[in-house]
Nucleic acid binder design. Structure first.
Length: 275
DNA sequence: GGTAGACCTGGACGC
DNA sequence: GCGTCCAGGTCTACC
């Protein structure tokens, strides 16, 4: 799960050698504490450093449950995956879960910061946001939580451009922060999973800076796998796998996994690529 | 409904 | 050292 995608490389995540991660978590009370999640026999062990009351502790448990997808069931996907040699190892390796940030707000911002830039650029932009605007960890003030929507909403576009160097993504991040901070958009409510996938997708596409790729990526994080996040990486993988390396477009990527129906995203994500 | 162009930034590359 | 290209896309104007 930790290595399921690049999120582990983005602040405020820190990879733990041997399997696991540290994460600077800001609770709704405002308290900042460090979360430690690591592999343990038969599952995982999670711990948090700090003096938490019962409500805060419950929030931390809910955060861990969400971040590593403990409540997800992939039995139906595994039934199909057993029939496909390229996904034969999915069940044995417990593939399916993808690492999430503590809040959907954080994941939407991070997804916007992956658009039209290199991965190094995404890491740099996230690092600046966290370092400049995230609440410090009391035990180690050099480390910070991801900034809240309210904190980002208090900034202006010029700061996000010149200091965080988000470039043309600055107005998108700022608009999102305003919508979430004002209560107009309750992203965290979307985790519950009550909305039909198409409605969820339309809602995500209504966020400035979120297009087809970003929406599909966020749907994956929300446990909806009906769409493949088609980006240049996906086009490269599918081109090599089925088109002799010749340049292809979105349609070819979508066609490659269309037969997987509501599990297209998972089939794509955990496919055993030839290269 | 489909498609060029513009868009911040910064690293890679060619000269 | 400098110019150009483009990277894990999106939005807008235009047809």
């Amino acid at each position: 799960v930790v290595e399921s995608h690049g999120w582990i490389q983005l602040m405020p995540f820190t990879r733990i050698e041997g399997g696991g991660f540290r994460y600077v978590l800001q609770l709704t009370s405002g308290q900042v504490a460090e979360l430690l999640v690591e592999a343990a026999p038969g599952g995982i062990r999670a711990a948090i450093e700090g003096n938490l009351d019962a409500g805060e502790a419950a929030e931390a448990v809910a955060a861990v449950t969400w971040m590593v997808g403990l409540d997800q069931d992939f039995a139906a996907f595994y039934d199909l995956a057993r029939l496909e040699p390229k996904l034969a190892g999915a069940e044995a390796r417990a593939r399916g879960r993808v690492l999430r940030s503590a809040t959907l707000f954080e994941d939407v911002v991070k997804t916007i910061l992956t658009t039209n830039t290199s991965w190094a650029g995404t890491k740099r932009m996230v690092e600046r946001l966290v370092t400049l605007y995230g609440a410090p960890l009391p035990a180690d003030p050099a480390r910070h939580a991801f900034p809240t929507a309210a904190r980002l909403a208090s900034l202006d576009e010029a700061a996000l451009r010149s200091d965080a160097r988000l470039g043309f993504r600055a107005p998108s991040v700022l608009a999102l922060a305003h919508r979430v901070a004002s209560g107009e958009l309750d992203l965290e409510a979307l985790k519950v999973g009550a909305l039909p996938t198409e409605d969820l997708r339309r809602l995500l596409l209504g966020i400035r800076g979120v297009g087809d790729y970003a929406a599909a990526n966020l749907l994956m994080l929300l446990g909806r796998y009906d769409y493949v996040p088609v980006d240049s990486w996906a086009r490269m993988l599918v081109a090599r796998e089925w088109h002799g390396g010749q340049a292809i477009g979105r349609a070819e990527v979508e066609a490659a996994f269309a037969a997987w129906g509501r599990y297209q995203g998972l089939a794509y994500w955990f496919w055993d690529w030839a290269e």
